[in-house]
Structures are given as structure tokens and as C-alpha cells.
Computed example of a mutant assay.
Amino acid sequence: MKNTLYQCGICNQEKEDGIFLYQLYLCHDCEKEIVATNPKDERYQYIVNKLKAVQKTTHTI
């Protein structure tokens, strides 16, 4: 049985293990990186910018 691959919204790689944050798919590797990244790290702002895509895919009532 073949697992479905999804493109991660952070690393842009296709992976089968991850979660959906609204409509944005996050692979487990990026999920771990998000949790572990210090706001002072250079990569932090990159992750924040990628996560802003979540705001564009959600609607408030």
C-alpha cells in the first residue's frame, strides 16, 4: 500500500509523515525544527514568513 505524499509548506519537500496546520502541511522534521528554533536564530524569520501562509488560507466568520 502506497502512502500519500504531501509537499511541506516549510521545506517544500514531499513527505508522507506530517501534520496539517489548517491547510498548510508540515513534515515532522520541520515541525520539530519549528518547536526547537530560538527566536534569535537566523532561520526563525524564514519559518515565520512561511507560516504566514496559514493566515492566507484561513477565513474568520
Rank of each mutant, 00 (worst) to 15 (best):
L51A: 11
L5H: 10
K40S: 08
D17F: 09
H59I: 12
L24W: 08
L24P: 07
T4I: 14
L26M: 12
K56T: 13
T57G: 15
E16F: 04
K2G: 04
C11F: 03
C27L: 04
H59C: 10
L24V: 15
E33C: 09
D29C: 00
H59S: 10
H59F: 14
N49L: 04
K52T: 06
Y46D: 00
Y6V: 08
P39W: 11
I47R: 04
A36G: 14
N12R: 03
D29V: 01
H59E: 15
R43V: 15
I19S: 06
T4D: 10
L26C: 07
E33M: 14
K15W: 08
K15E: 11
K50M: 12
K40T: 11
Y6T: 10
N3S: 00
V48A: 15
M1S: 13
Y22D: 13
K15N: 11
Q23C: 05
N49V: 03
Y25A: 05
A53W: 12
N12Q: 03
G18E: 05
K2E: 11
F20C: 03
C8E: 00
Y6A: 07
D41W: 04
L24M: 15
E31A: 06
T60K: 14
E42N: 06
Y46F: 08
N38L: 05
I34G: 03
Q55N: 14
K32R: 15
K32E: 14
K52R: 09
H59G: 09
D41I: 02
V54Y: 09
G18A: 00
